[in-house]
Design a protein around this nucleic acid. Structure first.
Lengths: 186, 186
DNA sequence: GTCTATATTAAGATAGAC
DNA sequence: GTCTATCTTAATATAGAC
């Protein structure tokens, strides 16, 4: 058997980059083929279910990224504040200083397979829980911590839109800078 | 000359509804025809430039809606707080309690004509200016007012995403409820 | 001004060679 | 496992009747 040009993780990663920029409907197989360096037929070999299977693999891959770069670091050894600072740094890279959209936004538009919405919901739920937990650990009540987590998530997603539409990174970067206080100062 | 089934305003309104749900790439002429009740050929008669012209008309129409339902009410006669409460009510209807996405989000993805991004940027700039002005009028410094306006916009856009992905209106509704304090309490 | 019918291009998807 | 070639369907767009 011939060896694959890209492993599943690299392949899903390229797919995520395409879906986050163009959305589900805008991510044609031609664009996905170009982004991955594979021909359309090769994509069908890797994902017999076609575009729907590719987008689900992309969603799963992003959920894994959240696991590694948000959930795990937030459950680490350092002080809560340092852990949040670390996560903010990782988020800054993932969103390229606010120049790249969030898949939770992009892929939650109408269109795509029904399970996709469930996958996005699950990923966002996990993210909210991770933020809530670090806020509780920082001394907040459950209610207050939940509220801070929701505000933080909304601020991240909202500032990404402002940064994208106005072409200015400062909105997103400022939100990241506010994260430590928001999540760890009761 | 035969009389049009829909005037330009009604037509643009249906187009906006389609674009906000499906984005630019997902809004095929078939979907636009279904949403407007016109055949594709009739859409080309009204908009010879095709889909690109339709999306620009939609963007212009939304900018007009902002003018009428945000800028003008915020420059009204009542107290600043009452004016913001009024705008919050209008926003609640426009976003259907947080169940419908914002075109500034949906249409700012990759794809579509280049002028579209300029139109969205201009609409968002106007919205920010209107929010900033009411905050200044409420006694804030220019710097503080600008900051509050940006935070308010990001909170609106971000909470719309949370509400959409998690299927819960409360995120968006809570943001609307916080608007009067955010924009009029120094 | 809107329609039916049709042309043209791109999208999603498969077959079979290497 | 990836490719070229091809099929089928849907998309954008136009022609011409009413």
């Amino acid at each position: 058997m011939a060896t694959a040009r890209l492993n599943d993780s690299e392949l899903a990663d390229r797919a995520v980059e395409t879906f986050r920029m163009y959305g589900y409907e805008g991510s044609s197989l031609n664009r996905l083929a170009e982004a991955t360096g594979l021909e359309k037929a090769s994509l069908y070999y890797r994902y017999p279910g076609g575009k729907d299977q590719i987008v689900m693999a992309a969603a799963t891959h992003v959920a894994g990224w959240f696991e590694q770069n948000i959930f795990l670091p937030l459950a680490g050894e350092q002080s809560p504040r340092r852990r949040v600072q670390n996560v903010a740094r990782l988020l800054r890279r993932f969103y390229a200083d606010g120049t790249k959209p969030c898949v939770l936004d992009t892929l939650s538009l109408q269109g795509g397979p029904p399970q996709l919405q469930a996958a996005l919901q699950s990923a966002l739920d996990g993210w909210l829980a991770a933020f809530t937990n670090i806020a509780i650990e920082s001394g907040m009540t459950r209610t207050q911590a939940l509220r801070r987590a929701e505000d933080a998530l909304a601020a991240i997603e909202g500032s990404l839109i402002l940064s994208r539409v106005l072409g200015q990174k400062r909105f997103f970067l400022r939100t990241l800078a506010s994260l430590p206080d928001l999540l760890t100062e009761p």
